[in-house]
Amino acid sequence: MTTGSPGTSRTRPPVVLLTGVLAVATLVVAALSLGTPLVAPQRLPAVLVAGDGLDHVVVTQLRAPRLVLGVLAGAALGVAGLLLSESLRNPLAVPELLGVSSGAAAAVTITVVFGLAVPYAPLLPALAGAALGAVLTVVAVRGALGPSAVLLVGAGVGAALQAVLLAAAALSESTDQGVLVRYLLGSLTGTTWTTVATVLPGLVVGGTAAVLALPALAVLRLGTEAASVLGVPAARARVAVLAVACVLTAAVVGVCGPVAWVGFLAPQLAARLAPGAGLPGRALRTAGLGALVVVAADLAARTVLYPVELPVGGLTAVVAVGLGAVLLGRRGTA
């Protein structure tokens, strides 16, 4: 979380920081102990070190990997959203509105429902799909002017790709509606350590690239002219940042679907909590808040209507768009 980032103690009173740490700790304990079977928090240490038993298996083999995947997915999507919105200087430039998420989701759905054997699945098809979605948007945007126009073109590309996803699922003999839910919205159902291992390579690459891209992003957010004055070719830098965001998004979407709109809410929350933070601090907070949002949403998704599991992406879509729009409105009028 934000504990280690520089500048925190200067900009936020320690009480707020403490509240944050407490909230994270509570959430982690809740994610490990809530559900069926219920593992009381005070029994967690014993259950974790116990060699066997149902509780031990449930906590270490089901809940722990799910928690870890939620953290990773939320952090990655948050940072992807930050990269996109800052490089295009538009708070609504998020994977969902640029065809990136739906491209990745459509490509993975096609390989899954038709049982196609693709090497390095699901990362490779997801990456191809994300790149296709982004390229389609970029090509379609040519000649359109203004931030709203870019987003509407992206939304159009996204809608078309989502229709392709639905058509592919309807064409296949697959009766597994879970696939559809996962790739339309995002879901952490059925996560094991193997799932976490699948998502890791893409996230390591994307995460490293994101750190390396931060200096370029810092210049890009000043605007194209300022960037060229500083000797940074803005167009090339923007493509690079866009590509990093695609890798991060694809790595997550390939495994757990788009986990909708986390990339919109997390950067907004980070901007709200620490308005004066520099870009590295902002990125760290965005990652932490993204993780927090996904873990909290997933906790609700799997417990509220137990035994029915809701798709975590449905909850994040509703909460993130609503809350993100409110934050955006505040910032706009302030």
């Binding site: 379609a140 945007v141 000649g143 359109a144 002017l145 203004g146 709203s148 126009a149 509407l152 073109v153 159009g156 590309v157 809608a159 078309a160 989502q162 229709a163 392709v164 639905l166 058509a167 309807a170 064409l171 296949s172 003999e173």
Partner: peptide, 29 residues
């Protein structure tokens, strides 16, 4: 199997039309 829904076809064509309108409109604005 369910088969391709009619709405998927209209979505793809409609999206193309939306993009065309947005482009023209944004330049005009």
């Amino acid at each position: 199997r369910i088969g391709v829904p009619a709405g998927a076809v209209t979505a793809v064509f409609g999206a193309a039309v939306l993009i065309g309108i947005v482009r023209r409109r944004s330049r005009a604005t």
